[in-house]
Every structure is written in C-alpha cells, then in structure tokens.
C-alpha cells in the first residue's frame, strides 16, 4: 500500500513538475532562440546602437562639446553640395570599378592556370597568398617607399633597365597607384576563390563538350564562366563592400593628398579629425546606404546567377 501510494505521488509530481530552464532552452521550440539571442544582443550593442546613434547625430550639429543642436536635414543638404565629398565619391566609384575588374580578370586568369596540377604548385600558391597575410597599412607604407621617385626600388629598377623614372605619386597617377597597391594585395582572394570553384566543377560536362568537339574558348564561355558566375558574384559583392571602405592604402601613402581622397578617408577626417560628429555621421550614413544599395543590386544578380547555375 505504502509503495503504491508513493508511486502515485511520484507520478503526480512528475506530471506537475515544471521543466528546468536548461530543458526549456534546449527544447525543440526554443533552441533556435537560445542560439540566436546572444548573437542578437551582440549585434544590437555593437551594430544597431551605433547605427541609430549615427543616424540620430546626422540630424544634429555636434562637436562633442555641449548639447547637440537639432538642425533637421541641413547636414544632408550640405552633403549634396559638398564638392570635396562628391569628388571623393566619384573617386571611390572609379577605384571600385578599376579594382574589381582587374582583380577579377587577374584572378580568373591565374585560377585557370593554377587549377591544373604543375610542379611546385603548393609553393606558388603559398607565395601568392602572402600579400593577403600582410597588414594593409604595412603594405601601403612599403609601397610608398618602393614608389618613391628618387630612392624607390621601382624607379631604380626602371633606371637599371635604361628607362626613365616615373613619378608614381603625381596628381595624375596617384589614384591609379593606389589602385595598383589594392589590386596587388587582393588579387589572391579572387584567385583562390575561383581556383576552389574550378576544382569543384563536374568533370563529365567538360568531357562531354570535348567529345562533341567544342573549342576551349566555347567551353570557357558556355560552361566554365556560367558555372563560376555565383562565385564571381560573391567576389564582386564582397570586394564592393570592402572597396567602398578603402582606407589603409591612403594612410600609409598620400593621406588623402594628390587628389586621392576617397569616401572613407573624408568620413574619417570629418568625424575623427575635426570631430564634427554631426556631419561625419551624415557622411557615414550616406556611405552605408550606398553600400547597401550597391550590394542589394549585386545580391539580386547573384541570386539570379545561382538560379541559372542550378
């Protein structure tokens, strides 16, 4: 009797017992939130709050001293008439087009070469990765010395070859020199992404094309390129996001001089040199919106490419 009574109590208590917190958190219903919430908290603190803070100050005049003064859309109006800002924007777009195109072309060319097996391939690939491993600021300082007119290694080599010295940092060339440094550092990224893509392509399709007598150019145009297009789009999207924020190559070289001031540099100068937080925030918001817009378009194209690839 006693045993039976006890077991009834036990059964009742089991039925009535609330699940432990850990059980709730790991239950099927809540587990996804358990995993997501820490990330969302971090994002809210480090991304959403600064973004809202930035958006708030873009409507104010504030230099970190005293109260911020609400000025409506005046900062935005000023931005649209700011010659220096518009020039920086134009230059950024120019750098974006030049760098993305060159990196893709070089990357694709090298990927086609390196996707085959050849003696010493690991050494070559390892060396090609080096530019990516060096801090961009250090790299820009090094290139600054290498491109120096009188002492720079590049001009010394040109002279040794009997050629004239080139003024790499002249106002006409400086922006292209910045592009060169950026391309030099980042071409391995597109190369290795595309090498991985090429190696994962199904061999049977290419073999069939070969049997059908398709020329290498036709195979490349009709098979390789369409199959690689999702990866190409990923490279374009990522590089676009990074290039809109290009900063380090300027810091170690021209510091925004000789007509090389880019979007991120002017934002930095305004917000963290003049500490004109209001106007700097406006520029930052504009830069963010631009990045989102460009990337949204790219993303749409990427999705279409993925659909096509399927």
């Amino acid at each position: 009797m006693q045993t039976e009574a006890l077991s009834e109590v036990q059964v009742e208590s089991t039925v009535a017992r609330k699940p432990a917190i850990w059980e709730t958190l790991t239950s099927e219903k809540y587990f996804k939130w358990t995993l997501l919430i820490p990330l969302l908290i971090v994002l809210a603190i480090f991304m959403v709050y600064p973004l809202l803070y930035c958006a708030y100050y873009s409507f104010h005049q504030w230099g970190m001293r005293g109260e911020a003064i609400y000025i409506g859309a005046q900062n935005y109006r000023q931005l649209l008439n700011d010659k220096a800002f518009l020039e920086a924007l134009y230059r950024t777009l120019k750098v974006l087009v030049i760098c993305v195109s060159c990196e893709l072309l070089i990357g694709l060319g090298l990927a086609l070469l390196w996707s085959r097996e050849f003696p010493g391939e690991n050494i070559v690939r390892g060396l090609a990765l080096l530019p990516l491993l060096v801090a961009p600021l250090i790299l820009s300082l090094l290139w600054n010395f290498m491109f120096e007119f009188d002492f720079g290694a590049v001009n010394l080599v040109l002279q040794a070859l009997g050629l004239n010295k080139v003024y790499w940092w002249s106002p006409e060339r400086a922006l292209y020199t910045i592009c060169f440094i950026t391309i030099w550092q980042w071409f391995p990224f597109s190369t290795f992404v595309l090498v991985a893509g090429l190696r994962s392509l199904p061999r049977d399709v290419f073999e069939a094309a070969k049997v059908d007598g398709a020329s290498p150019w036709y195979t490349f145009r009709r098979l390789t390129l369409p199959m690689l297009s999702p990866l190409i789009m990923i490279i374009v999207v990522l590089r676009t996001m990074w290039l809109i924020r290009l900063f380090d190559p300027l810091y170690g070289t021209t510091r925004g001089g000789v007509q090389t001031e880019l979007l991120d540099w002017i934002v930095y100068r305004t917000a963290f040199v003049y500490f004109d937080i209001g106007y700097g925030s406006t520029m930052a918001i504009f830069s963010l919106v631009l990045t989102i817009a460009v990337c949204a378009v790219m993303f749409k194209i990427l999705m279409r490419a993925l659909e096509g690839a399927r």
Binding site: F149, D150, F151, Y167, W169, S170, P171, T253, T254, V258
Partner: peptide
C-alpha cells in the same frame, strides 16, 4: 624640389638632404 615632395613628410625631405640630393 624633388618630384616626391608632393607626398613628402619630414623623413623624405631630410633623406633628400642627407643623401646629398
């Protein structure tokens, strides 16, 4: 002045003179 003066800081200018240029 040397062409490099357009992007020069103190180190460059001193190096030009120190090198005898």
């Amino acid at each position: 002045a040397p062409a490099g003066c357009l992007t020069a800081n103190f180190d460059f200018a001193c190096a030009q003179q120190g090198e005898g240029f």
